[in-house]
Design a protein around this nucleic acid. Structure first.
Lengths: 331, 331
DNA sequence: CTGTTAGCGCCTTCAA
DNA sequence: TTGAAGGCGCTAACAG
């Protein structure tokens, strides 16, 4: 039998299809003996209920969309894993979609989610098509965003507490005697990059450290941007003694730039990254960085979509904290 | 209208549902004027056909399963991306599943794929439940594996040509004067690790270099295993002047171990990795390694599942080649 | 406790 | 060119 349906099972067990359905979904509504016969038939025929048919009648697909910009960005795999772990635990399947930072691909992604009738979508990217988002909202498809600008009706949001970790970092650096602390930001069109930069500025003034504009330069959240930025920073007549980067890739670029200039980390300049991607542990020297748990992020995204208590969680948060390794040292 | 069905569209356009279906699927069977009215209704109501219903009647889900062991393993994201790129291009959606190297999770994964009625599954992991694999085969679900032991009827296989790249590496090393070349293998219960080790041995003898058993030690495809292995290798009275690692993580561990021993790379020992994961470019010094294109791997996996010409491709291959960076030097 | 009936939303004959 | 009717596989009333 290629693909047995509920009918073959019913015939085989000499019951009606309803009884088969019931022994699967409402076991207590069927007599044990009958159930046994049905199960025997199910295993005998290797029957698997057709999910499509089930969803069609139930109106729920048990499918969750997860949209990221680029899965090869080391930030995302752990997010996905965290999301997936909870999802499969609750018998949800996941539809992934990559936007490649392209609004058009984003639109296609959402259209696919719409056609598949997903029970929720986690959107971890910023290229969003407002019109399509509206359509999801109108269909009451639960959505969750990451650090979205303006939370709306029916849209959950995960806010990352960047400041807690950045404060720790500045605290750490200040404690080591650093006063001229530079910052290499991410591309400022990115909302999250803006937030990180802001958090840094605030943290600095919180410590009464003067914020020198020349010490804040823009990178691109990639290695080369970090390298270019640190080079610029090192050309200052009063160069910083420590640098905080908006993400780990930037920090890697910075370290590389410092080495290329014949200086050492942390001997001449201390460096602190952000994110604590897997790579951070393996730079040379191992990178001191602010950890943002992507697994936790994935978990929260799932929780926002599938509310255990029945009511949707509007706003969830994820903490950050400093992980001290070996790229920071007293001045 | 929360979720308009084909019926509302039909009413709105004052035609039958059949006509709506046709203007979407067989445009030439419907008069242009009518079609226009229908399209107007579709956009007006923001109608998206229900994929579940469609699959139910067509018998094809346009869903492809992709099973990996651990998405946070830097090997996989690019594979997924390559697979996804081609898939979305042809309007397929992807269901991901992680096994976490756990046969039981693998079984659950496959069960989910079965229930979703996927049109094909790419299985990029080795924990496989033969019984469930059989069920997939019996249902004629196209499958593709990576370096599987015994290809069977209806199962495609992607063979990676490890030897081409490893030959290049040994060639390169031999050209630099190295004769005592060590190898740090992966865990030998892994099929692919065995193949890599074998390819190395063969390559060596191909160059007439004597294979000293003590120069081949087993790692675990992770950083710590590489570190432990290189430590063991360095304790030999005649230590190797160059080491080839079964994957890049292992190479990273090796470099670290060499540094910890107060030696330098490539000054004292040359190191060659395998895979060319993203990280390889950012080690210190940048890692010379054998590149295995994961994107290509993903592409091939897709092609094996969805055959353009109508007949399934039974066996596809992916090449490897040496990428020379800075961890190798003349003796 | 079990079976019969009526859809879920769509595509596909078959007639008109 | 269009429409009516049947069915994809399953669940959920409603009867017995």
């Amino acid at each position: 039998m290629a693909k047995p349906t509920i009918h073959q099972v019913a015939d085989h067990a000499k019951v009606s299809i309803t009884t088969v359905s019931r022994t699967i979904n409402n076991p207590d509504m069927v007599e044990p003996e009958t159930a046994e016969r049905v199960w025997a038939a199910i295993t005998e025929l290797e029957y698997y209920p057709n999910g499509q048919a089930r969803s069609l009648v139930s109106g729920r697909s048990r499918l969750l969309g997860l949209i990221v910009s680029d899965i090869t960005n080391p930030f995302f795999p752990e997010v996905i894993k965290g999301f997936e772990d909870l999802a499969t635990e609750q018998r949800f399947d996941i539809l992934i979609g990559s936007t490649d930072y392209d609004p058009q691909k984003m639109a296609l992604c959402i259209r696919r989610m719409l056609e598949r009738r997903v029970d929720g979508v986690a959107i971890m990217t910023s290229e969003m098509d407002n019109h399509l988002i509206d359509q999801l909202a109108r269909r009451k498809v639960p959505m969750v965003f990451l650090d979205v600008a303006v939370p709306r009706e029916g849209i959950s949001n995960i806010v990352v507490n960047y400041e807690s970790g950045i404060n720790e970092a500045v605290d750490h650096l200040a404690g080591l005697g650093h006063r001229r602390i530079g910052f290499i930001s991410g591309p400022q069109q990115l909302k999250s990059a803006q937030i990180r930069r802001l958090a840094f500025m605030r943290s600095l003034s919180r410590y009464g450290i003067h914020v020198d504009d020349r010490l804040v330069v823009e990178g691109d959240h990639k290695v080369n941007g970090g390298l270019a930025a640190i080079t610029q920073l090192m050309q200052l007549q009063e160069r910083p003694t420590a640098v905080l980067a908006s993400n780990d890739l930037t920090a890697v670029g910075a370290i590389r730039g410092i080495h290329q200039a014949g200086l050492t980390v942390p001997g001449d300049i201390s460096v602190v990254g952000f994110d604590d991607i897997w790579l951070a542990e393996f730079t040379d020297p191992p990178l001191t960085t602010v950890r943002l748990s992507r697994t936790e992020l994935g978990h929260q995204a799932f929780r926002a979509l599938v509310c255990d208590n029945g009511t949707p969680h509007g706003e969830l948060s994820v903490e950050t904290r400093l992980v001290i390794r070996e790229t920071t040292r007293a001045i």
